[in-house]
Amino acid sequence: MKILLVLLLPIYILYYTYDYFKNGSITFGNIPTIIEFLIFIFFIIILFYESMQENSEVVLYKRINFWVCVGFLFYTSGNFFYILLVEKFFDAQMSIKNQLILIYSIVTIIKNIIFSLSFLIKETPQITNNSISYVPDLDLEPTRSNTN
């Protein structure tokens, strides 16, 4: 998955640059942002899946990185439609624009709260069980010398 992420990054940068020069710096290009959000959601789900497969004794919600991912998931999924439809609202009334800003702000505030809470989590270190299963030596020690 890391390889996929590394491969996607230059492709995304190239596309973003292409979109920037195509539309000009003044116009807002929402397609690259939508792609960015989709990549984010995809990799967060992959990360959750990998965490589920992990042989760990620490529950996910006691890990900082889990809550950081949750924050990003909220932000990207909550603002997905906002970014998708933002061009349609350029000429909308101020009251509708305010509604959009409200939704955007609520999602962003939730994300920030989740991020802040993640810093309060005290991560318990993973206990690795290195103890060897002990089976006593059953062979009695004395009279080992072999004198025929």
Partner: peptide
């Protein structure tokens, strides 16, 4: 019109958040 799109955005956002 923008109000219809606003409704779509509201429902979509709610759906996405529920999914998340």
């Amino acid at each position: 019109d923008p109000s219809g799109i606003s409704k779509l955005m509201f429902i979509g956002t709610l759906g996405m958040l529920t999914l998340a």
